[in-house]
Design a protein around this nucleic acid. Structure first.
Lengths: 344, 344
DNA sequence: AAAACCCGCAAAAACCGTTTAGATGTAGGT
DNA sequence: ACCTACATCTAAACGGTTTTTGCGGGTTTT
């Protein structure tokens, strides 16, 4: 009982492989294969439970029907949710998803890209890049290789991106705090960072200050090293809540920072929101049930995945038409909960 | 600038494709290719940035160097964490990961399996099955196809599984509650369910009752329909906390149930743990920071992924040696937090 | 009426890039 | 002249898709 191939069917039916291939690809009518023959082929294929070999097909057509997803870490719920919605769209067109984690290492990311592209492993890539410049990616673009950036932007990469409006989201968050009187709102952010998403959030913070005519105070902005969030946030919160600085509210650039901040506040024996209010970028399940529930800027993860995959499909199916190679910016949503409400 | 293949290199160097292939696969010495020639081939390959075609290689060798992961939903953090650790191990041996979500639909799962196996899409599969019987999977096993089950067991599938000790975990959880005096401990579980993991947890609950000589009271066990967790849990909690039933503690069979239970308790204006204690299976980030922090039975997600991938690799590399086709049961860990501590 | 053309159906062959079993040529030793 | 060893090559195979070719017979052109 070896593998059943197109040849097996052809032999049994005493027809050629060509014919079988044509019929099974629904090109039977187009090539004028008689209905009877078509019926017979289909029936036998069904009977033998024939499945075409991806390899053979791919070798000839140059297409793998696989799309690659490269993110920092697929275990991160933000990315895994996106992965799921990509999968949903991909499936409709018969594509499958290969996921790769770059661990925020730029070289690893490039290596993965090469692997996926050059070895014909994937027909296109959806990428949350960790590069700090577009240079390494430009050749891909020039070669017309289907590539969609998500989540993180890159200067010079003006097309083929699906992003959220980080600046506006941050602006909304900080404005909310300002509106309720917390003029001394601090920001916890990741740094030093070249990530567009992070930087735009800082810009949004500044926008809100300007709107409410509050002077920018660099003592209120703390850059936290990605690898030591826990310790550094504790340290930062200590300073921010000291009488000298006296921050009234905190805006965190992502959910990890928020979690660390909450733990720090708790450890310091203070309470959110009474001692200090909190709003975070990224809405995660946790925030709904935490103590207190956290007001957050939610990103439309499902939309990001869907739009990215749709865009990529366009690029794959009609590679020449660069007209449709657009840049999509999705809105964020403010989810109001208790952490931002000072009851004073 | 077309694709650079093994032929391109052969041509330029005026040698045969065979030779190039041999050298690039490190079989040069074995076949007595002169050092000089080997050097030249390697150098040119490097220069041209040659990447072998997965398709061609796969077609010839019958191996895709891809492993398939089928789970209910890759967006579920439990699975995405596992996926990540699988990826780590797979990478070492040059394998890549294709993820597929079955959405708990048995037919879809089978369809995905067929796709991965028969079309040579994957060299092996790691599966968290949603089947209620081993029957559909037995043919795969018989055919010697590398398959490892994770998370959920199936009767008759005594080999090639990586599981956690659900029964012991549940026993530990409920024992903890019993020990601190909560004899009337209720259980929230998913049902009707054929999932081994869920059923074993119920057994563990019963074990603990027996240990503490408490009679099983079916009014204390509520089966919740998977699709309507929120509503049904609310309903169930109402009954459990009514004077008639008067449950003192709740053990939930998974994190979703715990979350719903917490929301229900909150909505009813009661407090955990003072009005009712809570312990949940599955430890998720949320539980660390929720109000109150939740005592939980943690599963070793990283280990599950690693062990599963290692087992699968064994099956792939030496298919005949069924001796190593083992069954691995990993221990759970009790993470003690506040939700289980009644301060009475 | 012979030559040329077209058409419906289907087979044959080429091709995609690799791996691999088996063959080949060349030189040196006996 | 024959054997060995070495270094390399030829050709088939993998399983599909695509291009080219074949053929019988009717239709049109000359």
């Amino acid at each position: 009982m070896k593998k059943v191939s197109i040849g097996t069917i052809a032999e049994r039916l005493k027809v050629s492989k060509t014919l079988v291939s044509l019929v099974l690809n629904d090109k039977g009518d187009q090539f004028g294969i008689s209905k009877k023959t078509q019926e017979a082929v289909r029936k036998l294929a069904e009977q033998l439970d024939y499945q075409p070999s991806r390899m053979a097909r791919g070798l000839r057509t140059g297409r793998s029907k696989i799309i690659g997803l490269i993110v920092a870490d697929i275990a991160n719920p933000f990315y895994s949710r996106i992965a799921r919605s990509i999968e949903n769209i991909a499936e409709r067109s018969g594509y499958h998803l290969m996921v790769c984690s770059s661990d925020e290492i730029p070289e690893r990311e490039l290596q993965l890209i090469r692997l996926l592209k050059d070895s014909q492993g994937a027909d296109g890539i959806i990428l949350s890049t960790t590069q700090d410049s577009a240079a390494p990616l430009l050749p891909l673009r020039k070669a017309g290789y289907p590539l969609v950036l998500i989540d993180r932007d890159l200067p010079k990469m003006d097309k083929g991106c699906v992003l959220v409006d980080n600046r506006k989201g941050a602006y909304d968050a900080v404005s909310l705090l300002m509106k309720s009187g917390q003029r001394r709102t601090a920001m916890l952010t990741i740094g030093p960072s070249h990530l567009s998403s992070i930087n735009e959030r800082l810009e949004g913070y500044k926008d809100a200050l300007k709107k409410f005519s509050v002077k920018f105070d660099k003592n209120l902005v703390k850059e936290i090293a990605f690898e030591r969030i826990r310790d550094e946030v504790y340290q930062a919160m200590h300073e921010l809540l000291s009488p000298a600085v006296d921050a009234q509210a905190i805006f965190t650039a992502n959910n990890h920072l928020a979690v660390a901040a909450m733990e720090a506040v708790r450890r310091m024996g203070k309470r959110i929101p009474d001692d200090v209010a909190l709003v975070s970028f990224d809405d995660v399940d946790l925030f709904r049930l935490s103590d207190p529930p956290v007001t957050a800027i939610a990103q439309p993860m499902q939309d990001i995945g869907e739009k990215a995959m749709e865009l990529l499909l366009e690029m794959i199916e009609k590679p020449k038409n660069k007209a449709e190679n657009k840049r999509i910016v999705l809105p964020t949503t403010l989810v109001l909960r208790e952490s931002s409400l000072k009851k004073k």
